[in-house]
Design a binder for these strands. Structure first.
Length: 510
RNA sequence: GGCCGGUUCGUCUAUCGGUUAGGACAGCCCCCUUUCACGGGGCAAAGACGGGUUCGAUUCCCGUACCGGCUACCA
């Protein structure tokens, strides 16, 4: 019997969750759900200096918005609690000590200043960043170079120390990455990473391995930036005697900045004017807010969809997938090896597609909120639904509904009389005066009736409808936008239509 | 510098050795529409380079170039 699939997303709570982070969650989630497994969120808060208040809540709010609910987490609980590494602090030391006893790790007493000095001393043009490795460890102050007596007295004196892994010389370690196939490293290139810090906290390297083992993680997916530290983790799985339980790895391609090269960062979004975080994030230190996809007006369905397509496709021409379809069709083997530049235009296209294909009820709440943000409170729900149906095809982001539809709920605030005036004359004035009378008398108020009356009246006055529809539109909505003019008139009703025509006529007299 | 990874239209990508190298976004044109969209049709646009292997390479191998990641008591 094969083990139940268990995957985890292990963020450190240092700020907002960006595209790459959410995509990693998504791929974890899709894989887990497809395999009928568990999706775990574990908070990796072992670096107290980088801890940011509120970041953890933000992560869970983001997951909720995206519809990526964990099965186990500090918030959801679970059989392997606690799910916050700071709360698991005590359990890591024993494994580090176990490694020391077995000769796979050692105590190192070097101070930060001494490390700095070492790096400066051995730095050369060919080797700009000397590593604490098989060779240099011989020159440092650690339990490998110091006498047993000295080490134990240091320890009992309470001298600060870290525990470092003792990487072997010239061994090949390799593993099969689900995306990249076999990847191998020579251990001579791997340095003696710190496993346990002087403050007693584990580093990421020790903590992932221990927790993945303890939490029975079967598949570990993370960004490509982790590939170089894979050999350290491999060695740890081996030295801890857990090799048989090591998860299968997949290193996800990076999401790159749209222009130039390099990993996409928060700064790129600020610079180029698009969101990078899933939701608004306010830095508690600077009180600076970075806008998120949610607040920008993206539907979570579209956000998930566009993230999934950044590095994956199902081999067909289909690009629109619901969460259900993604769960069904996703496969790690089809994930691209190369990084993908983020294209905001394409991202917006996904949202547009989702707005078009969503039912009006699905859109109602979001659209209502967007109106309320602009001070337009909507009381008539049926009217709202009608308006959404009428304008959704021309809305890319949720706030577009305001531009495309505010005039259904209130008279246009700004009326572009300037584009009417030059071509305005008495004949047109006459026409609209007559139109008011005709509409006042009309008993039918459907789009087709209004259009028919309008055109008949135009013909009677020997005017081209085309010259009249432009001013009519501006009367009704204030400018050259919005759905069909007669649709608008039909929806806003007789009184409002007449009122707006009269208003414009008045404006033109002055 | 070293190690690891990557490389198909401007961008995201399809191709499991044989294709006029396909689709989508963006761009341009036309139709529809007397607004703007939506929709429909069309144009333009790609295998980094050099060697192999092969009857045949975008596809497999090697090298070069370029890009990226990592090289912390950060994740």
């Amino acid at each position: 019997m094969s083990k139940k699939v268990r995957v985890r997303f292990a963020p450190s709570p240092t700020g907002g969750l960006h595209l790459g982070g959410v995509r990693t969650v998504l791929f974890n989630y899709l894989f887990a759900k497809q395999m009928g497994g568990d999706f775990i969120v574990r908070i990796e808060d072992t670096d107290q200096t980088r801890f940011v208040a509120g970041a953890e809540d933000y992560i869970f709010n983001t997951l909720k918005w995206c519809g990526l609910e964990p099965d186990e987490s500090p918030l959801h609980g679970g059989p392997y609690a606690p799910y916050r590494q700071s709360e698991r602090k005590e359990s890591y030391r024993q494994y580090a000590e176990q490694l020391v006893k077995a000769g796979y790790a050692y105590y190192a007493f070097d101070t930060p200043a001494e490390l700095e000095e070492m790096r400066n001393k051995f730095k050369t043009a060919e080797n700009p960043s000397p590593q604490y490795n098989q060779v240099l460890r011989e020159k440092m102050r650690n339990s490998l170079t110091l006498g047993e007596q000295e080490v134990s007295s240091f320890l009992s004196e309470g001298m600060p120390y870290v525990i470092r892994i003792k990487t072997p010389l010239n061994e090949t370690v390799s593993f099969t990455d689900m995306i990249r196939g076999e990847v191998s490293f020579n251990t001579s290139q791997v340095d003696d990473k710190v496993l346990l810090k002087a403050d007693g906290m584990p580093t990421y390297h020790l903590a992932v391995v221990v927790d993945d083992y303890l939490m029975k993680i079967t598949h570990a997916f993370r960004g490509e930036e982790w590939l170089p530290s894979a050999p350290v983790h491999l060695l740890l799985w081996k030295y801890l005697g857990w090799l048989a339980d090591m998860p299968q790895w997949a290193h996800l391609p990076l999401i790159l900045k749209p222009d130039g090269n390099g990993k996409l960062s928060k700064r790129d979004g600020d610079r180029l004017g698009f969101p990078v975080f899933a939701m608004d994030w306010t830095d508690p230190a600077t009180h600076e807010t970075t806008t998120g996809f949610k607040e920008k007006g993206f539907l979570p369905e579209a956000f998930v969809n566009l993230l999934a397509m950044l590095g994956w496709n199902d081999g067909t021409d289909n690009e629109i997938f619901s969460m259900e379809e993604l769960i069904h069709k996703f496969s790690m083997e089809r994930v691209h090896k190369g990084g993908a530049k983020f294209d905001y235009e394409k991202a917006k296209w996904y949202n547009h597609e989702w707005i078009k294909k969503s039912g009006v009820e699905r859109l109602e709440l979001g659209v209502r909120n967007v109106f309320e943000e602009k001070g337009i409170v909507i009381t008539d729900s049926n009217l709202l639904l009608k308006v959404i149906e009428l304008v959704k095809d021309r809305c890319t982001l949720l706030p577009d509904f305001v531009q495309q539809g505010s005039f259904f709920f209130q008279s246009p605030a700004v009326i572009d009389t300037d584009s009417v005036k030059p071509k305005w004359d008495d004949k047109k004035n006459m026409f609209f005066t007559e139109l008011i009378r005709a509409y006042e008398l009309s008993t039918l108020w459907e789009t087709s009736d209004l259009e028919k009356e309008f055109k008949e009246l135009a013909a009677a006055n020997q005017l081209k409808p085309g010259e009249l529809m432009a001013p009519f539109r501006i009367m009704l909505v204030g400018g050259k936008f919005g759905p069909g003019v007669f649709d608008i008139a039909a929806v806003i009703g007789k009184n409002e239509t007449i009122k707006r025509i009269e208003h414009m006529l008045q404006l033109l007299q002055n």
